[in-house]
Design a protein around this nucleic acid. Structure first.
Lengths: 228, 228
DNA sequence: TATTTTCCTGACGATTTGGTCAAGTTTTTT
DNA sequence: AAAAAACTTGACCAAATCGTCAGGAAAATA
């Protein structure tokens, strides 16, 4: 029995004691970094929020930057998933709708991570390695190729694939990063599930079908294609 | 002549000496704040960039916050202009295209200000007064009403006006705030005029007409309206 | 049980930072 | 020209902050 007990304790501590504490630190850190940026965040505060003494935080992470870059890494790791919706074998209508939905969902559930990333971008991406940048660029290229494929098949209007992707990204990202403005704009304190659903519908509708009412009389028809 | 000379000197200094120095300080500050955020910016650095000794900066601005809020103010002051394009007496197609163009132009010319604002939003808008928030909300409501009017006249698809506006804002804003990502995505070092033009075209095209190719055969026609 | 490894933490140090001040210079006004 | 007002600045300070460290507690291993 003593043996069994030891095993249980072991399961809860060994390997776990470190994992658990690191997790707590990172959790506190992502929230603070995302709000206050790298410089604005005090590790004393990270320590306080995570319930550990400051020196203990330093036991697990050598420097403040170590915590930060660790977060950036794990963020980028989960970044690609939504983009996978944009695959060549799907119909653009369905794929794009799924992408928007997935991205918004991500924005809603991982608000802090999103903000952290935005913060990092605003700072010029100083803490993102060359490799990581190349990765972002690579997956963007892949997806741009898919879009280009759709266009060639006549399934999509001939827009610039890169800017189109940026547009989708920007729109969905916005709801995570600027939740405060968005809430103010909508006259609310906080965004709820219904707001995100309304956002999703609006974005999908506009991106797929455009904002101009399709049944509009050909009043300006002679100019309707001038834009492109 | 002595008199004339005095007058000239006066014009260049009196009233100007303050104006000029404040301008230099603010110019340096907006660049730094926009990159490093409020906490990340050292006023010693502001002083250095603006070429003044630190104590002199404090002669013109009582605190760091004073500089910051001053910038936020002047930013919001120039904020409404682009939105004015969305007016009830214009055709939506033309008005929206003009708005996107104007907003992108602003993003391009006032990159730092835009980033500063984004930074402030990420932080939750701590330094924006209640009045200023109300102002943002008020002008958004006005424009949402215009959009709603267009929809009622059948000129616009029945989308949520607020989310539609947010979408436009997000998309255009993105190019200022995340220029670094955008550049990486496009595989460039920096965005030039042509990039912004391509962005404009893409956004306008998608927002007005949608991404789905209009002449597509009615393959999925039975589902084509499912989304909304 | 003994020993080794991992974990914990209060106290401390070096440095940085926002902000002050007093003494001076330049400009404006009278 | 003299007095007043506006501007300039090197030196300084108190508080905050990142990171260190030594010594002890807990846990794993033998």
């Amino acid at each position: 029995m003593a043996k069994a007990k030891t095993a249980i304790v072991k399961a809860n501590t060994e390997e776990h004691i470190r994992a658990r504490n690191e997790k707590m630190i990172l959790k506190a850190a992502v929230e603070l970094f995302s709000r206050k940026g790298f410089d604005g965040t005090r590790i004393a505060e990270i320590a306080q929020v995570s319930g550990l003494p400051k020196a203990n935080v330093y036991y697990y992470f050598a420097t403040k930057q170590a915590i930060y870059t660790r977060l950036i890494e794990s963020l980028l790791a989960g970044w690609d998933k939504a983009l996978e919706h944009i695959s060549a074998d799907r119909e653009p209508r369905e794929a794009l709708a799924a992408y928007v939905a997935a991205k918004l969902e991500y924005s809603r559930k991982h608000t802090s991570e999103s903000r952290l990333f935005a913060n990092e971008m605003l700072g010029g991406g100083q803490f993102i390695s060359r490799q990581q940048k190349q990765h972002v660029r690579a997956i963007t290229r892949e997806r741009a190729a898919v879009i280009q494929g759709w266009i060639k098949k006549g399934k999509l209007a001939p827009v610039d694939p890169n800017h189109f992707l940026i547009m989708l990204w920007a729109t969905t990202q916005f709801y995570a990063d600027f939740a405060s403005v968005t809430a103010v704009t909508l006259g609310k304190g906080r965004l709820n599930g219904a707001d995100f659903e309304e956002a999703r519908k609006t974005i999908v509708e506009v991106v797929l079908n455009g904002a101009i009412a399709p049944m509009e009389p050909a009043k300006n028809s002679q100019r309707s294609l001038k834009i492109r």
